[in-house]
Amino acid sequence: MIASPPLPPRVVVYEGRGSTPFDPGERSRLLAGLLDRGYSVVRAGAGRAEAGAATAFIVLGCFGGAPPEVGDAAGRDVAVCDITGRSADEAIALVEQRRDGRPMNRPDAAGPGQWKPWFPVIDLARCTNCMQCLSFCLFDVYGVAADHTLRVENPANCKVNCPACSRVCPEVAIMFPKYHAGPIDGGPVSESDVQREKMKVDISALLGGDIYSRLRERSAEAKQRFSRERSADQALAERRRCLTKLADAAAIPREVLDALPSPEEIQRRTEEAARRAEAARVAQGARAAQGSTPAGTT
């Protein structure tokens, strides 16, 4: 779960009794403008609208100078804004003012506290809980649920634009909905996709277990070469060559590879992840065995 600021206020665009409808073009611009700034919006008045889980609401309506008194039985903060005669931009500015500078994640902003939602999503219909992704990820994105199945535990730890874990999944069960192409984006999975992924995993096994063990070997080789040749430039060039190969093979962005921890730390994290994955597999096996025990024998 991401460490996020409180939920932003939900905006209710009200056009029911006691208000006059918006101009259709302005209504459309108002809705798009609010969404592009990160607000959830409900259009109400022309039918049913859910109150939702928000802790605060801002109600926008053309009330002709007489906005109604509104209370909320659940004690939530409700602000009513009369936007009669205002443009969509002016109404949005009013919402921003009402928000009073409270922090929120925003699509239209960058910098500290802002987060692009990039993280893996599991297709539960395909996932076999083999835990390869958990073993692979160095950033603790994955965890194990109480029922010993795979869980995306820390989505915010994921490295933006890196879909590498989806490449090690033999079942093509890992999606990144903001990726640009299928099946990683959640598009249909073909039999050839499955065969290709299985082949990759097999090649990885033939290379010596996993991609990180190969990385460690290359790092050790580079260290040896450095001590022999005393050339920092050559060592650096070797590291770059190795990282470029990895980046190409697994579509890992260069900045993610550059940010990898030391080989020793990679080893520690890999071993820890492997331990967790193995514990989950053992627990799954025990549960399956329990489930297959004939009734009345326990």
Binding site: R27, S28, Y39, R43
Partner: peptide
């Protein structure tokens, strides 16, 4: 927006899910 229906809009389902 031009139809006579109530509906809900969210900026980004991914962000909400996370």
């Amino acid at each position: 927006a031009r139809a006579e229906v109530a509906f809900e809009m969210v900026p980004d389902l991914c962000e909400m899910a996370a």
